[in-house]
Design a protein around this nucleic acid. Structure first.
Lengths: 144, 144
DNA sequence: GTTCTCTTTGAAAATAGATGTCAATTTAAA
DNA sequence: TTTAAATTGACATCTATTTTCAAAGAGAAC
C-alpha cells in the first residue's frame, strides 16, 4: 500500500467509520495539511496553513488528538514544540540546532540494544524516543 | 570532585560570580531543593517543596532557566512535564508508563552508534536524548 | 558599619498553547 | 427529505511560563 494521498484518505475514512465518527470537510482539510507538510508540522503551522480560514483552532486540536490517539499520526517534541507526522515505519530524528533541519534515520542495532537494556531492567518496552541534536553539514560550513 | 551539597553549592556560587549575579537565599533554597530531590523534579514540585513560602513561582522559573542555560541542570520531558536534574555524567532514561518510575542507564554501544550515524549524515552532535517507555517489572506483576 | 548603585524579588498582569462549553450547523442513516 | 446525533466555531477557561514594576536586598567602595 503506497502512501499516496488517496490511500491516506481512505485509511482516514476507515478510521472514522470504525470510531463512528463523521467525515467532514474540516477533518479532511486538516488531514490534507499534514499530508502536504510532507514531513512534520506543528499545530500552529497547521492552523495557519489551512485554506478555509473559518476552521477554528479547537477543531485543529480536536482532530490532531484524534489522529494521535488512533496512532494515525506520531508526535515528537522539538524545541518545546510538538510536531506531528503521519505514522509510518518507526524512525528516530537528528535535528540541526542552527537551521532546524530534521533528518530521519533508523538503526537496527540501536533498536536491538534498547530491547536488551530494557529487559535487563525487567521492563517491557512499548515505545521510545531518540533525538540527536547538533549542527548539520551546511551550517558547519557557514561558520567559517 | 564528589557531589556533596557543599561542592554543588560552591560550583553554584562560582557560576553566579562568573555571570556577575548575586547570591541570594532564594537561589540557594532552590538549588537545595533540586539537590534534595536526589533525581529529578518538576518546577511545580520544586515550588511546593520550598521551606520559605514567600518565594514566588517566578523566581523558581527564573532560577531554573538560569541553571539550565548554564548547563548546571539538565532537563527532559515526561508526560508533557519538564523535569530538572543536576547535570552529571550523561545518561538516558527508561520510564514506566504505569507507576511513573524512572530508571537511568548508560550504554556505550548506543552512544558510539549515535556518533557513527551522526557522522554519516555529516552532523556534528552536541547532544541527544533517548527515552524508552514501557511497563516495569512490578507493574507487570500487578496486571495478573 | 554606612552608603549607594545595581540586581533581585514577589505579586500581579500578560502571554501562549491547549482544552472545555454550548448554541448553531452539518452529517448520514432511515 | 427528515431527523437524531455528532461536529463545529467562537469564546471562555485553564495551565505553564514569562513579563512588568515598585520595593527590598546584595555587595563593592568607602
Amino acid at each position: 500500500m503506497e502512501n499516496s494521498y488517496k490511500n491516506i484518505l481512505e485509511k482516514f475514512k476507515k478510521l472514522l467509520k470504525k470510531n463512528e465518527l463523521k467525515f467532514t470537510k474540516q477533518r479532511e482539510e486538516i488531514l490534507e495539511a499534514i499530508y502536504n507538510s510532507k514531513s512534520h508540522i506543528s499545530s500552529e503551522e497547521l492552523y495557519h496553513s489551512l485554506q478555509n480560514p473559518k476552521i477554528g483552532i479547537a477543531t485543529v486540536y480536536r482532530t490532531l488528538s484524534l489522529l494521535e490517539s488512533e496512532n494515525f499520526v506520531t508526535t515528537f517534541i522539538n524545541s518545546g514544540v510538538k510536531q506531528y507526522e503521519l505514522t509510518k515505519e518507526h524512525h528516530d530524528h537528528i535535528i540541526c540546532n542552527k537551521c532546524g533541519k530534521i533528518e530521519e534515520f533508523l538503526n537496527p542495532e540501536i533498536e536491538m540494544l534498547q530491547e536488551k537494556i530494557a529487559s535487563s531492567f525487567g521492563f517491557k518496552i512499548t515505545d521510545h524516543s531518540l533525538q540527536m541534536f547538533g549542527i548539520c553539514k551546511e551550517c558547519q560550513k557557514d561558520n567559517l
